[in-house]
Design a protein around this nucleic acid. Structure first.
Lengths: 185, 185
DNA sequence: TGGGTCATGTAACCTGTTACATGATTAG
DNA sequence: CTAATCATGTAACAGGTTACATGACCCA
């Protein structure tokens, strides 16, 4: 996944690993976490596969850099990956923990859901910042059709956050209902 | 995550690896995928940590089995994990692909969102089956407080699916809007 | 003089994926 | 007779996490 994400970014234009990292932080990181070290490792993998090539550029006053470009076979691989519509493996750590929270007492659980509803999980920097970053890059990419899909992922994040809040409220209501039943015994 | 999920299941009562696997398929697998082989590997890890113990039971007519039990330190570890409310790493493969779908043409993308909206992603066996499994195990666990959290995860799945459908419809509308603009040129 | 930016990684470890392996009993 | 159920794994590889490493420039 990450490998193809990086390939997708390089498809917008040539970049250094450092630039990939900074764009990644403002875009893909909203739905995929990765450390800098992993990005550099994946870049080596992409080069080994022949999907990207690199050009060493000496600089004075700042570190030398490696400019990376997608190759023809890299573009082909990106398209192949995009066309593959199989379902993806689910992985929601939040639910894994929720599932077993019956071990903890109701007050702790209510506090948990309250804090979850309050803290934005998808855009820690806020929706506006995410949208601003998307607009900034849309101008660079210069293709409104491509930028639209960036926006779609931001829309998803917003809708997800709203849904999460509703779910939290519902869980809190049901937990409070249980508490009442108990005190009525 | 998986390690602690297995620990949580063993906290309901003693089980064999095989039983963990079957319960897993009807519960945790809705938000976490894992192969049988990984479950057995994690079980070895749990035993190495001293969080579970095993008892070999010889059987005639069917394979011998290993009955697993959570230990005191295992229960402690489970609680420690549950109390740790740090945010989790996000990982939404669906959005990774969506982000770059601008490479494909609008018709393909509309078809993609249509199929996504139609096919239930969280409960491939249907909501009713998931709920039935939860009820069945609730009777076994015999603790309505714990069963409530199982239900919460199913509620989440339902709300997520509805949200996903709305998102798909919205994306389709915007893509169609773009097509109109083009044909009006 | 201290922190942020630019710029690159290595190493060890842990977790997830894919493929393979075995074999008896029981229900249709 | 054949498929499902019970019951256990190993091996190799791919991908993600954590910790560590270097160093010059520029701005406050």
């Amino acid at each position: 996944m990450l490998k193809h994400g990086i390939l997708g970014l390089l498809n917008y234009g040539d970049m250094t690993g450092y630039e990939i990292m900074t764009i990644f932080r403002e875009s893909l990181s909203h739905f995929w976490t990765a450390q800098t070290s992993q990005i550099y490792r994946e870049l080596q993998g992409l080069e080994n596969e022949g999907w990207i090539t690199s050009k060493h550029v000496a600089q004075t006053g700042r570190p030398d850099k490696k400019i990376l470009s997608i190759t023809g076979s890299g573009k082909q691989e990106l398209d192949r990956w995009l066309e593959d519509d199989r379902q993806f493996n689910v992985r929601l750590p939040l639910l894994m923990k929720t599932f077993f929270r019956g071990e903890l007492d109701a007050d702790k659980n209510i506090a948990f859901f309250r804090s979850l509803a309050k803290n934005p999980s998808v855009f820690p920097g806020g929706y506006a910042a995410a949208q601003a970053a998307a607009d900034r890059y849309a101008a660079i990419i210069g293709d409104s059709g491509k930028a639209l899909f960036w926006k779609f992922t931001i829309d998803f994040g917003l809708m997800y956050e709203k849904m999460l809040q509703q779910w939290c409220e519902r869980c809190i209501r049901e937990l409070k209902g249980m508490q009442h039943e108990h005190s009525a015994d």
